[in-house]
Amino acid sequence: MHVHFLDPYRPRPSLVHQLDPRIKLVLTLSFILTTALMPQGAWPVYILLLAVMISVVLLSELGTGFVLKRSALAFPFVLAALPLVFTGPGPSLGETMLGEWTLRISQPGLERFLSIAFKSWISVQAAIVLATSTPFPQLLVALRAIKTPRLLVAIFGLMWRYLFVLADETLRLIRARAARSGVSAQGEVKPGGSMLWRARVTGGMAGSLFLRAFERSDRIYMAMASRGYDGEVRMLPLPALKPVHWVILGAGMVLFAVLLAIAYLL
């Protein structure tokens, strides 16, 4: 079994997929920044933002269901903002009794909580579209275009290249552990020793994974050195951007600026 399912890239013949990765990265980051800069509770503009996002998802032909399912990833974190609902200032919207506590639902708190949840949800969608519509090597090109240091990009690239190899390695370790550990058919018999023992086993697996990674990196270095690697990371020059790309970039920026202006001025 291989863990290629880890790669989120989904090839589609869509316009979003064909867009230059540099433009896509900058537009995604600007969209997320625009979302973050929105004042809270500007619901009509939020709806417009959502509309822009859904249009991009539709254009990308990734499937709205797919994007929605993936975007649920960020939801557990919403818990961190939940106290806002009860501790915010301002008029109360009602009280709930929870055991001995009386929870007072604050109206600005609730509004702020919903704004945060919405912003987070929509930003995650933008990131999902970027990751699923752009092959990773192209993202690396985009990262270089926005002046990420070469060495860092090289480490990113190597990490990506060996991520799947090491994830396979990990799966083999996990399978070996599962094969050696009996599971009782009776539910009440707990499998696998004490917690300390389980942690020890897992730690041993992690240690063995690290050793294998060390040894693999030695072999990789040898292979690179024999092909002329001298410590310098060389990369192909970036292809020039076409005028149409600049137009798309400009249009996107204008759209974001207009949305921000509506939110603040209206």
């Binding site: 190597l158 190899v165 990674a213 990196s217």
Partner: peptide, 12 residues
């Protein structure tokens, strides 16, 4: 450099 890349993958 390869060591850092592969170790990052290992941590992941």
């Amino acid at each position: 450099i390869p060591l850092m890349g592969v170790l990052a993958a290992a941590i992941f």
